[in-house]
């Protein structure tokens, strides 16, 4: 029985990383607004992620305590939405559209350029903590294809060779 379990075993390893004390204090200040309101779980998580950058176990635990829900429930929501992340992200998140229109207009080349220049592929974070790359299915801006989003900025009608110069604007 145990051998079988061992074969099938694949454990989720929690990410343990120290969060500075002042960040935690700021977090508590933000979460105060949602105290005892379980219905505000997603806004609370969004605010927490904006502050900390990601949602490690410690942060999820604080959110759970403050809103009065269980940490399992928080974890369920965090893992459901791709917007939330439990691993640290780069300072800038690149969301590259790989939808049909963008793909046809050369998104694949843009992806290759990013991978070559920054050294990361989809789902990864660069070792200097500068970029995280995500692929999305459609950003609803097919008229501007190919499109990529860096943080909150939208870049449209990109010529693949310009990729590097766009990214240079984000340090």
């Amino acid at each position: 029985m145990e051998e079988r379990d061992a074969l099938l075993k694949k454990k989720v390893e929690p990410v343990v990383e120290a969060i500075p004390a002042e960040k935690l204090e700021q977090l508590d200040d933000i979460l105060c607004r949602y105290e005892g309101k379980p219905g505000y779980l997603i806004p609370a998580l969004k605010d927490a992620q904006e502050l900390v950058g990601y949602l490690p176990q410690q942060v999820q635990g604080r959110v759970a305590d403050m809103l009065g829900v269980t940490s399992s429930h928080v974890y369920g929501v965090v893992t459901f939405y791709s917007f939330f992340t439990i691993t640290p992200r780069g300072r800038h998140t690149i969301r590259l559209c790989l939808g049909t229109a963008c793909y046809v207009k050369g998104a694949k080349d843009i992806l290759e350029n990013i991978t070559r220049e920054v050294g990361i592929t989809v789902g990864e974070t660069s070792s200097d903590g500068r970029f995280t790359l995500e692929a999305v299915r459609c950003l609803g801006a097919c008229g501007l294809a190919p499109v990529l989003l860096v943080g909150a900025d939208t870049h449209g009608n990109i010529v693949p060779k310009d990729t590097v110069s766009i990214l240079e604007g984000y340090q």
Binding site: Q57, V69, T70, S72, H73, G76, T79, F80
Partner: peptide, 22 residues
């Protein structure tokens, strides 16, 4: 009234677990 177990992840990857599988 415990809510100790939750569905985590989604779609094909969905499973039942506590937070971080503790």
């Amino acid at each position: 009234g415990e809510n100790e177990l939750s569905f985590i992840k989604r779609g094909m990857e969905c499973e039942v677990s506590t937070d971080f599988g503790r």
